[in-house]
Design a protein around this nucleic acid. Sequence first.
DNA 1: AATACAAGTCACCAAAAGGTGACTAATTTA
DNA 2: TAAATTAGTCACCTTTTGGTGACTTGTATT
Lengths: 214, 214
Amino acid sequence: MAEEGANDTGRNKERTKQRFLDAVEQLLIMKGVSALKVNDIAKMAGLDKKLIYNYFGGTEQLIDEYIQSKDFWSNVKGEMVPEVITDGGQAFVEEMLLSQFDYVAKDKAFQKLLLWRLTEQRNSLQKLTDAQEANGETLLRGITDPHFEDQSTQFRAIMAIIIGGTYYLDLYAAVNGSVFCGIDLATDSGRNEIKKALSSLLNSTYKGLKNSSE
Amino acid sequence: MAEEGANDTGRNKERTKQRFLDAVEQLLIMKGVSALKVNDIAKMAGLDKKLIYNYFGGTEQLIDEYIQSKDFWSNVKGEMVPEVITDGGQAFVEEMLLSQFDYVAKDKAFQKLLLWRLTEQRNSLQKLTDAQEANGETLLRGITDPHFEDQSTQFRAIMAIIIGGTYYLDLYAAVNGSVFCGIDLATDSGRNEIKKALSSLLNSTYKGLKNSSE
DNA sequence: AATACAAGTCACCAAAAGGTGACTAATTTA
DNA sequence: TAAATTAGTCACCTTTTGGTGACTTGTATT
């Protein structure tokens, strides 16, 4: 058996597989989904494409394995959900929205996956979606549903719009001139306006919905 | 010169060009951007691909011409802006948001263009974006900026989130299992929740922002 | 009807892309 | 260290895709 650890010379199946996965990510980030072809992936990895067939079965399976390797929502998974919540989760949700807005802006690979999900029906992507939905469901059911009671569905609808909005703006900013509704999403001041707006929307939602049910 | 009008037999350059443009739309709707290849377009149009080169110069130009042929925002262009506005445009903006939410859900080609814009840098798409932005700017400057005064930027940021949100949800609904934040975007009741949420967000924005500046 | 020209077809080429059999070379195991 | 195994290379084939020259057919003009 070969020595484990930080050997980066010689022959090594696992390291090679990882290089293909890395190459997929690089290509995805740099050129988008349409650039994920066997020849290009192999070239990017600096290896022979035959190995893609040997190790993964083909490009599709390699891509699926790449997608599955990205467990984006595990790090949010109620990791820092506070012990006691007295505000119906408002502070927590706000923190989540704001950090998500910044996170998506930075993670190019995540952006591409978000976009990919809107473009193509693919099992491994659907799994990501389902995991995200299940994760969100836990938070909603545990924290905000009890708070908003009979208005909980309305709160979810509002969250859907706001979360979708942050995704869209981050995706939009990554490609276009990045001015949307006159807000320049490439600048700090523009992004701060969006953050203020996120907080403001959330705040008035917590005020408004609660008022009408009390 | 050949007779003009509803002849759909015989040889006719303009009609043939139109058939290619229609074929592009069909393929775009049915299979997405990645399916727009010369051979496939020609097959879909039932014509020889040579004509694409003859009439348009190539696939890229044909695609550009298709994109330019879709003048999506001309129909919204303040066509039904009311004469007198006493509510800071709230009713008008609400109507716009709700009808846009439904419109995008129905127009598959529009969805693909929205998505395309997020995927690829392309001049003809950028033109669409610029036109949309210019159109929006007119409305914002003419109607809501005067109303919100020093809060007008904050209002724009909120609109960016809400509009982006409706786009995202419509795009999401078109592909995935269509449940987002527990809201099923494929059902009337789910979509109605979103609409209620849109109205509610807009309403509390008009209340909230105005209060803090008065 | 003869001519001229534009519309449309077809066969063909070249490059890119996917895919594999047969080899070589390193590494492990006996 | 010899045998067996596995990692990795290379040449080659097939299919798909983009692109065009040379042709035929229809249409309008005279």
